[in-house]
Design a protein around this nucleic acid. Structure first.
Length: 304
DNA sequence: TACCAGGAGAGCG
DNA sequence: CGCTCTCATGGT
């Protein structure tokens, strides 16, 4: 008797060293909401609810799924995190950061959504970015189905859709001066003047240079997109938090220019510098770095 | 109230 | 190259 594969809307994925909470809450993505023990979000045109424990991630969707590769790719479930951590320098700050953020991962996001989100991120706090992106999707994204009892969900609006709007429409989503940048970038993509898919085939430096041609995209935002959407793991976004982390942990608090920090990052952190950056960012932002330093002071006081 | 936020771009010397 | 200013809005 032939086995029939019946598409189902739920699936278990075994995992190891995967901290879903930290991963979805580490400033690399802005669309996930926590519901008690689970997270709800949208990947492409699919709504999904994720529930994690030490050994597995359980996924539920609103519609039956026969091929889960969209999810395994997004969550990077096939990645052996140990092989990444093994490339990190063995110094005190990285030891502390990787210990404090064990299981923190990088996602593989959709390039357009990632690009648009980070254009909106400039000089904004993470809670505000979430608010802006949420408004944008609710107003202009296509409605998608969710499991009974959950809040309505929307896909991220396409570049074509955003390109049809006015700057006033976008400013209505609280994005301020970023509206013009987002609109112009949407126009460039919608008109076919810029091809995000082509960046895959370029070197990291060429891909970065291409992204930086877009309005509202400088070095930092380009590096975020390279790292979070394309998987260029040497890309090293330097924002205020990472700047502070590097100064404090590697330059005895001295002021160092972003240019020098990029050179230091490439030399010191190696081929997965971007991954190391995410650990430092999260370590800094969660305040764990302060606790580690406090412990060190106590230990030193006791020892002396 | 003042300051800051996962910055970029323009103008200046 | 490096510095400074502005842009819009809300959190702390």
């Amino acid at each position: 008797m032939a086995t029939v594969l019946i598409p189902s809307g739920n699936q278990h994925f075994p995992v190891q060293d995967y901290d879903l909470d930290a991963t979805l809450n580490s400033g690399q993505v802005f669309r996930w909401r926590e519901y008690g023990e689970s997270w709800c979000g949208v990947i492409g045109s699919r709504w999904v609810r994720l529930c994690a424990n030490d050994r597995s991630i359980y996924a539920e969707t609103a519609n039956p799924v026969s091929d889960w590769s969209w999810l395994t790719r997004y969550l990077q479930l096939e990645l052996n995190i140990g092989s990444v951590l093994a490339t990190f320098p063995v110094d005190e700050p990285m030891q502390a950061a990787t210990a404090a953020c064990r299981g923190l991962r990088l996602l593989r996001q959709d390039p357009w959504e990632c690009l648009a989100s980070f254009i909106l991120s400039s000089s904004k706090q993470i809670v505000q970015i979430q608010q802006i992106v949420s408004l944008l999707c609710e107003r202009y994204g296509e409605r998608i189905s969710v499991l009974p009892g959950y809040r309505p969900a929307h896909a991220f609006p396409s570049a074509t859709r955003l390109g049809q709007l006015t700057e006033t429409d976008l400013r209505g989503c609280k994005m301020g001066f970023r509206a013009a940048y987002l609109l112009e970038t949407a126009h460039a993509l919608a008109a076919g003047l810029f091809d995000l898919a082509r960046l895959d085939s370029l070197s990291v430096d060429d891909a970065r240079a291409e992204l930086m041609r877009l309005p509202g995209v400088g070095r930092k935002i380009a590096d975020c997109v390279l790292l979070f959407a394309y998987g260029f793991q040497s890309a090293f976004p330097v924002d205020v938090w990472v700047m502070r982390a590097l100064r404090q942990l590697y330059f005895t608090g001295r002021s160092v220019s972003p240019k020098r920090l990029h050179r230091f990052a490439a030399e010191h952190f190696g081929p997965n510098a971007g991954y190391a950056q995410q650990y430092l960012f999260h370590y800094m932002r969660t305040g764990d770095v302060q606790r580690t330093k406090a412990k060190a002071r106590v230990a030193k006081a006791n020892g002396a």
